[in-house]
Design a protein around this nucleic acid. Structure first.
Lengths: 255, 255
DNA sequence: CCAGCCGTTCGGCTATCCTGAACTTTAAAT
DNA sequence: ATTTAAAGTTCAGGATAGCCGAACGGCTGG
């Protein structure tokens, strides 16, 4: 009777998840607060929270509920599923040490770019640690670096699924143009993001591949225009990132 | 009719969660594989996976399902909920730089010790990155350090809830003995784990508190006996960890 | 080309989740 | 202290929504 939002979805599970998302937003929420926000009776919310609590998906402190450790543990499995992902962490940190720029290790999942590791200095304003965040591939540096290494049909598939949405005035929205750029990326061995994503935000990304040729993910450094642009600076950074990737690929092959 | 395993738990949500746990164990599972393991019809599992997929709690690659990025994102919120937790990361890394021992930042949640940050060298065998794992407080170094800073009734409550289970021959299982040790911890300003947890595993932990006095969490270094024991070595490490904690507390107070 | 296996769809039955109200507890205010 | 209110929790009946088994279609390997 309420809006049938999507096909064949389990209502109960969906509400449980919705509650988790509310908890994320409010952070330390009481039963009635969530009940109000979701416009459902307290008893319903209570039942869900009781179940989630039992699995430690949430924990209860006094009358407040928080996202629980089991969710952290399970979610973290994404970063440890492949040995390569675990290894990538220390290389992300080395990349930061060498460049002093926010460094990220990203993988492709479901046609999107997912952050698995980040390294950045202390007082970076945005260091919100956005692990798990999903960005587009077509307007990020690593995204393009990864795309460039994928087999053509796969690229088509991804572009078909997500399109080429414009997020800044610099975003590449033309399919032809994107493919041309990917060609260039393959030549250079690295990709650049010129504020195609967020204004003022520039980045350089390089994909890492296995000996077999298929891609694992990619490393990137990002920063405001002045710290990444300029031909010399750019070339230097690209070189550094490529070096890290080479060492990463080498160590992976040895293990 | 089936075994009523526990009070008032939402069956649907519970199964969804059970499926996630199966995915964690198998890592890259097909519908029928999970169905078989859980002894439920394929169609049921399919429905759950469809729902979880829609929320990106799982992703599907070919016919294989994996834990999805949204779970990583949500779970990671545990580490970013408090600014202090975010700040703790870099101090964990500094601690590793200075000691070259596996360094961990831990908080207390629901009477257990939860790892939020770890830093360790490359070739450590166990670096399974156990973020979110829950350990006891009474037989770990940070655990005891944290306990020592909690108000007495809270300690009682936690010990009542979880007991003092024995995990190695060194575990303190006597309530009196534990309280005496906590007293000693308060005097020294640090706690020690002498293989009370896992054989061969020693650790030194120090709790970090706010100016108000309540505890945030704790830092620790762990290693095999030879790298942590010996009076001089121990004193030196304790000093290092305490220093890190002091700097952490200071920087936190300034922010 | 056929046979098996697997993923997916579908409709009916009934278990189970939702709901609203009652009960308990906590906190504040007079 | 006593009272009021608001929040958390419990409960039971009724309707919804998830579970199931069977059938379909796609894929792979013999």
């Amino acid at each position: 009777m309420p809006t049938d939002d999507s096909p064949k979805t389990l209502r109960t599970t969906a509400t449980s998840i919705e509650i988790l998302k509310q908890l994320e937003a409010i952070d330390g929420a009481r039963v009635s607060e969530i009940a109000e926000r979701m416009d459902k009776p307290k008893s319903t919310i209570h039942g869900h929270l009781a179940t989630l609590k039992q699995e430690q998906f949430v924990i209860k402190e006094g009358d407040f509920y928080f996202i629980g450790p089991e969710l952290l543990r399970l979610g973290n499995q994404v970063r440890t599923r492949e040995p390569a992902f675990v290894l990538a962490r220390q290389f992300t940190e080395r990349l930061f040490e060498e460049t002093r720029l926010r460094s990220i290790f990203t993988v492709e999942m479901g046609g999107k770019a997912v952050f698995l590791h980040t390294a950045s200095g202390s007082k970076m304003g945005w260091s919100h640690e956005q692990l798990g965040n999903r960005l587009f591939l077509h307007n990020t540096a690593v995204g393009k670096a990864i795309l460039a290494e994928l087999p053509e049909p796969r690229i088509e598939q991804i572009v078909d699924r997500w399109g080429l949405p414009q997020e800044t005035e610099n975003t590449t929205t033309d399919r032809e143009a994107l493919f041309e750029e990917l060609e260039r990326v393959r030549d250079q061995g690295y990709a650049v993001n010129r504020a195609e994503n967020f204004n003022e935000l520039y980045a350089i990304g390089v994909a890492a591949t296995r000996r077999s040729g298929d891609v694992i993910g990619g490393f990137s450094v990002t920063g405001p225009a002045h710290s990444v642009t300029g031909e010399d600076r750019k070339a230097e950074l690209a070189h550094t990132v490529k070096d890290i990737v080479s060492e990463f690929e080498l160590e992976l092959a040895l293990a």
